[in-house]
Nucleic acid binder design. Structure first.
Lengths: 236, 236
DNA sequence: AGCGACTGTCATCAAACTGTCACCAAAATG
DNA sequence: CATTTTGGTGACAGTTTGATGACAGTCGCT
């Protein structure tokens, strides 16, 4: 999930556009509405990774949306950030008690809002905020020890995992077998150089197999007489 | 842990007393210091459940304390709320990026601060705020010490309960046996690593058995050579 | 003391993972 | 084109790792 999915519930069109622009630029996918009931529909359509919620919207009030989201098991863990007018302390307290994860006071600077959202995401879904490494259509969730290719989970053995991680941390770079033995197996490893080949094969097999016998493009490039590299560029 | 343990780092004596008074009244146990280095010592003495951190304190600056806490594995997950003077937006953004969980702008109302702290605790350590924790079809009622899977009550021994609770507080994350022994059994435990396996099995048996011999999907994932995690995502 | 629930450790079994080889295919080399 | 070099592949035996069932010790309660 390289692109966090944000739902923005805000009826001030100008503000909504500003916020949308900023988060789109940050790599978020943003859906927006100014109506509370519509917001609930959109949540059901697709579960957002985070909800920005204006306190005063038509249809359902912010507090009501918040409560409904928290009540349903499916949406209970979706982080919510409230947007409140300045000084409405009552509302803020009530909002936090209702289950909002954070609030931001208008007027806010876009930069601050972005930092806030990132902070909440980092906490709730580390994979969405830096604890994950991404390259092309590969995604590695470090804390969860999980790997996805084109959205599908990929099962890797420990060594293949470490190998892929090494590549992901230096994408595009070519590594010799010696170097890989050193950094993936450990400085004291006295394995055959060809052992690397075998694990490269295993990694390829695991990561290029798209489920039903399909073949995804090979993302590991063999550089003759030099080594291997992670590379999505097929021609070239 | 009915009584959350708070560390207050604030050098304005009057303010410190005010805050202490309020949180004590709310049932917190509050330790206080006005010096940054002393704060680090106090953290090491006993791990607080939450840190309130004035941005400007003697000894070590707030940002430095924050960074040091985040760096050490033992303290990386302790929630931190910064107290900043009004309008220092730069600092706030920087603070959030450094890893603070939230900030409150002076002057603040005690009531708001209490709500903020409660919100952060609810998020990071739901157990301390009395709420229930939910993940997939598992439900843990902290105050009632009860667990449900798919709506049905599940009987757990004390250790299995703590183990599951730890997983629920960090869903999706992989924990090594060492880490689990540390955080579920206690820092001073000198048990065999394999003890964890056994309790994982007991937890699995209890939680995957759907009553009449039915088998619910295993929600605990074994990650070879790494540890275990709570994970509902079977295919992907 | 007796009972029952809970714990920690072991020995054993099964499965997953690893490293090496021999052999084949492809690419360079002359 | 023949030869040499380099990488791909399938098989295999050894090793590591996790799952499991059994068992004895501990604790709290009656």
């Amino acid at each position: 999930m390289a692109q966090p999915d944000m739902l923005l519930v805000e009826d001030d069109a100008a503000l909504a556009e500003l916020v949308t622009w900023h988060f789109t630029r940050e790599g978020y996918s943003v859906r927006q509405t100014g109506n509370g009931e519509e917001a609930m529909v959109m949540v059901r359509e697709r579960l957002p990774d985070i909800v920005l919620l204006d306190w005063m919207v038509e249809g359902l009030s912010g507090i009501e949306i918040c409560r409904q989201l928290r009540r349903a098991a499916a949406t209970a863990n979706v982080p919510i950030i409230m947007l409140t007018a300045r000084g409405e302390e009552e509302d803020r307290v009530r909002g936090l008690q209702t289950g909002a994860d954070d609030y931001v006071t208008k007027p806010f600077s876009p930069r601050e809002l972005v930092a806030r959202v990132a902070a909440v995401l980092r906490r709730v879904r580390p994979a969405l905020a830096g604890a994950a490494i991404t390259y092309a259509d590969i995604e590695m969730d470090i804390v969860g020890h999980k790997v996805k290719r084109a959205g599908k989970n990929v099962a890797l053995g420990p060594t293949e995992y470490r190998l892929l991680r090494h590549f992901l941390e230096h994408p595009g770079r070519v590594f010799s077998r010696e170097h890989l033995l050193d950094s993936v197996w450990g400085h004291d490893s006295d394995n055959e150089l060809r052992t690397v080949d075998v694990h490269i094969r295993r990694l390829r097999k695991a990561i290029n197999d798209g489920g039903g016998g399909d073949e995804l493009p090979d993302i590991i490039r063999t550089v003759r007489s030099a080594g291997y590299s992670l590379d999505m560029d097929l021609a070239g």
